[in-house]
C-alpha cells in the first residue's frame, strides 16, 4: 500500500508542477492579449496594477473570486454548474501529453495526437451545456452557433493533422517533433499551417470567428448568465484552450522543442524555452488577428469551413500522400 501512496504522491506532484505554470501563464497571456490589442489600436491597455500592469489578471481573478455566483432560478442547476467545470477540466487535461522536451512530458502515450484531438472535440460540451442550462434565448443561440462552428472546423483540423501524420508515421507527439529535426513542417506544408492557424482561431472562438460571443447581437452568448467564479472558469478554460492550440501548432509545424538552428548560442538554450517561445509567437499572432480583422458573418464562416478549407486540406492530403509514395519517402519503410 505505501507503494501506491508514494506513486500517487509523485504523480500528483508532477501534475501540479505542470498545471500551476499553465494556470499562471494563462493569467499572464490574458494580460499580453490585452496589451497587444491595445498597442495595435494605439491605446495603452492595462498598465496600472503592478509593473507594466502585469498583475492586472491577478486583480481580475481576485475580483471574480469575491463576486457573488448567481444561478438563475429557471436554469437547470446541475448542468449549469457542470458546464464551466467541464470547460476548465478539458482545457487542463490536454496539457498532459504536450512534450516540453525529449524527456519532460507527463504522459508519453502512443496516440497522443488522437488524445489531444478527442479532448478538443469534447470542449464543445462545456459550451452547449452552459447555453442550454441557462434556459435563456441568447445563451442558447450562442451555444448553437458555437457548437456548429467548432464541429465544422474540427473536420479541417483533423485532416490537417492527417497531413502531418503522413509525413511522420506515428501518432506520438514526441515522434512528431523528432521527425522535424531536419526541416520544420511549416516549410513543406506551409498552406496547411495557414489553414491550421485560421481553423484554430475558429475552434477557440477567437476573433474574427467569435460569433458565439458576438457582444453586439448575443450579449456574450453562452456566458450571459454566468457570474463570478463560474464566469472566470469559462474564461480561463477559453484561454487555456487558446494556449493549447498554440502549443499544438508549434508541435505540428514549428518543430516543438527543437531549436531553429543547431549552432552554438541556440542549442544551449534548454528545450522547454524554445517551445514556450514558439507558443508565445503563435499567441501574439492570435492577438494581432484579434486587433486587425473584423468579425465574420455566420454564413461566410460556414462557407469558409466547409467549402474552402475542407476541399483544400483534402486535396493536400492526396498531394502529400502521392508525393511521399512517388518519391518513396513514406516513413516506416
Amino acid at each position: 500500500m505505501p507503494d501506491y501512496a508514494s506513486l500517487l504522491f509523485s504523480e500528483v506532484l508532477k501534475i501540479l508542477m505542470l498545471l500551476i505554470p499553465v494556470l499562471v501563464s494563462v493569467a499572464m497571456i490574458v494580460w499580453l492579449d490585452r496589451r497587444v490589442w491595445a498597442f495595435v489600436q494605439k491605446r495603452r491597455g492595462p498598465n496600472v496594477v503592478g509593473p507594466f500592469g502585469l498583475f492586472q489578471s491577478l486583480a481580475d481573478a481576485l475580483k471574480y473570486i469575491f463576486k457573488e455566483i448567481i444561478i438563475p432560478a429557471s436554469s437547470n442547476k446541475v448542468i449549469f454548474i457542470l458546464a464551466p467545470i467541464i470547460t476548465m477540466t478539458l482545457a487542463l487535461i490536454s496539457w498532459a501529453v504536450i512534450p516540453f522536451s525529449e524527456d519532460f512530458v507527463l504522459a508519453d502515450i502512443n496516440v497522443g495526437i488522437l488524445y489531444l484531438f478527442a479532448v478538443s472535440s469534447l470542449g464543445v460540451y462545456g459550451i452547449i451545456m452552459g447555453g442550454w442550462a441557462s434556459n435563456s434565448k441568447y445563451p442558447f443561440l450562442g451555444a448553437i452557433r458555437s457548437a456548429a462552428q467548432m464541429v465544422s472546423y474540427e473536420v479541417s483540423i483533423g485532416i490537417i493533422i492527417i497531413n502531418v501524420l503522413l509525413c511522420v508515421g506515428s501518432l506520438n507527439l514526441s515522434d512528431i517533433v523528432k521527425a522535424q529535426e531536419n526541416v520544420w513542417y511549416i516549410i513543406p506544408l506551409f498552406p496547411m499551417f495557414v489553414i491550421f492557424f485560421i481553423s484554430a482561431l475558429a475552434e477557440t472562438n477567437r476573433p474574427p470567428f467569435d460569433l458565439p460571443e458576438a457582444e453586439a447581437e448575443l450579449v456574450a452568448g453562452y456566458q450571459t448568465e454566468y457570474s463570478g467564479m463560474m464566469y472566470a472558469m469559462f474564461w480561463l478554460g477559453e484561454y487555456a484552450n487558446i494556449l493549447l492550440m498554440c502549443a499544438l501548432g508549434s508541435i505540428l509545424f514549428l518543430g516543438g522543442w527543437l531549436s531553429p538552428i543547431d549552432i552554438f548560442p541556440f542549442n544551449v538554450i534548454p528545450s522547454p524555452i524554445w517551445l514556450i517561445l514558439k507558443i508565445l509567437l503563435l499567441f501574439i499572432l492570435f492577438a494581432l488577428v484579434k486587433a486587425i480583422v473584423p468579425r465574420y458573418r455566420y454564413d461566410q464562416l460556414m462557407r469558409l469551413g466547409w467549402k474552402v478549407f475542407l476541399p483544400l486540406s483534402l486535396t493536400w492530403v492526396v498531394l502529400t500522400a502521392g508525393y511521399l509514395m512517388y518519391f518513396d519517402l513514406l516513413p516506416g519503410n
Binding site: 496516440v111 488522437l114 488524445y115 484531438f117 478527442a118 472535440s121 469534447l122 464543445v124 464541429v151 474540427e154
Partner: peptide, 9 residues
C-alpha cells in the same frame, strides 16, 4: 480514442 472522437465529439 476513435470512440471518443467519433461518438462523443
Amino acid at each position: 480514442m476513435i470512440m471518443l472522437i467519433v461518438y462523443v465529439g
